[in-house]
C-alpha cells in the first residue's frame, strides 16, 4: 500500500504538478499553535509537511532552526508528544507528514517502537539527518524487514513508512546509488554544502546534483536548504519534483509567535506562486 507521501507524488505526477514541502519544528512555539500551523499549511496547499523532532545538539542546523528547536524542547516537545500532535493532525487532515529528526532521540525511543507508533499515529515517513546509509542497515531492517538493509522487498514492508535520505553536492556517484536505493517516498537533495538557513540566491551545485539523481532513479526528488523565495521555486521546478522550505517559514513563525498560522500559511501561498511562473500546476 502506498504511503500518503507516495500517493501525493502519484497525484502530482498525474497532474504535472510540483510539491511544496514546508518544514516546521514540532511543538514550536507550542503544540496548540503548531497544530494550527500544520493545518493552515495543509489548507494553503502544502503537499507534504516535514515535522522536526528537536534535538539538543542540532549540528546540521543554522540559527533559525536551532532557536525553533530550543523553543520546542522548552515545551517538552519530544517523540511521545510529537506523535500525539500527529494524531491531532490526522483528526482533521490527510496531509502527508514526514518526521525529520537527528538519530539519538529515535535510537533512544527504539527503532521498532518508533516505526510502529509513528505509523499508528499517522506519520508517513522519517528523514534522520545524521543517519548515513552506511549506518542505516538496522533501521532499514526494522522498516522493511530485509536483513541486508536494502529495499528489494519494499513491496511488503514491515511498516508502511517511508525512509527518506539526504543526497549532497559532495556525495560521490557510489554514495548516490546507495542513497536512492535506500530512499522511499522521495530523495532529499541538499542544495549546497552547509547548514540549514536562508540565502539570497540559489547554489549552483543543486542543478547538477538533481540531474545526477534523476539519471539514477524514478523516485521523486525534492530540493532543500537555502530555499526562501518564489523565484527559487521557479528556478528549481524544471529540475526537481518538489522543494523544501524550512528556515524561511520558521523565521516567519518566529516573527509572529502569538498567532503564527495565518502568517506562515500566507507565506506558503506566496512561495507557491513560484511554481506558476514556470507554468506547472500550483
Amino acid at each position: 500500500m502506498p504511503t500518503r507521501i507516495q500517493q501525493r507524488w502519484n497525484e502530482l505526477r498525474a497532474s504535472g504538478g510540483k510539491a511544496l514541502i514546508p518544514f516546521v519544528m514540532a511543538g514550536d512555539p507550542d503544540m496548540r499553535r503548531c497544530l494550527e500551523v500544520v493545518l493552515a499549511l495543509a489548507d494553503a496547499g502544502a503537499d507534504i509537511i516535514e515535522l522536526g523532532v528537536p534535538f539538543s545538539e542540532p549540528v546540521a542546523d543554522g540559527e533559525v532552526i536551532q532557536r525553533a528547536g530550543g523553543r520546542a524542547i522548552a515545551n517538552g516537545s519530544f517523540l511521545p508528544a510529537i506523535l500525539d500532535l500527529v494524531k491531532q493532525v490526522r483528526k482533521q487532515s490527510q496531509v502527508p507528514l514526514l518526521l525529520m529528526s537527528y538519530l539519538n532521540p529515535i535510537l533512544r525511543y527504539g527503532f521498532e517502537k518508533f516505526a510502529a507508533d509513528a505509523v499508528a499515529a499517522g506519520a508517513d515517513g522519517a528523514l534522520i539527518t545524521d543517519l548515513s546509509v552506511e549506518e542505516a542497515g538496522p533501521y532499514i531492517n526494522v522498516i522493511r524487514g530485509d536483513a541486508n538493509g536494502r529495499n528489494a522487498e519494499a513491496a511488503k514492508p514491515r511498516h508502511n513508512f517511508d525512509t527518506v535520505f539526504l543526497a549532497s553536492p559532495t556525495s560521490t556517484a557510489a554514495r548516490l546509488r546507495r542513497i536512492v536505493e535506500y530512499s522511499t517516498g522521495f530523495v532529499y537533495a541538499v542544495s549546497r554544502t552547509g547548514i540549514t538557513g536562508t540565502q539570497a540566491s540559489l547554489s549552483t551545485a543543486i542543478v547538477p546534483l538533481l540531474a545526477k539523481l534523476r539519471a539514477l532513479t524514478e523516485t521523486p526528488i525534492a530540493a532543500g536548504f537555502g530555499i526562501s523565495r518564489p523565484e527559487h521555486l521557479a528556478a528549481l521546478a524544471p529540475h526537481a519534483d518538489g522543494v523544501v522550505v524550512g528556515s524561511a517559514l520558521v523565521k516567519c513563525l518566529e516573527d509572529h509567535l502569538d498567532n503564527p498560522a495565518p502568517h506562515v500559511a500566507e507565506m506558503a501561498r506566496w512561495l507557491r506562486e513560484g511554481f506558476k511562473e514556470t507554468g506547472v500546476r500550483s
Partner: peptide
C-alpha cells in the same frame, strides 16, 4: 564508533 554524520560530511 562508526560514522553518523550529515551526508555532506560523509565523503569528506
Amino acid at each position: 564508533g562508526g560514522r553518523y554524520a550529515p551526508e555532506t560530511l560523509m565523503h569528506p
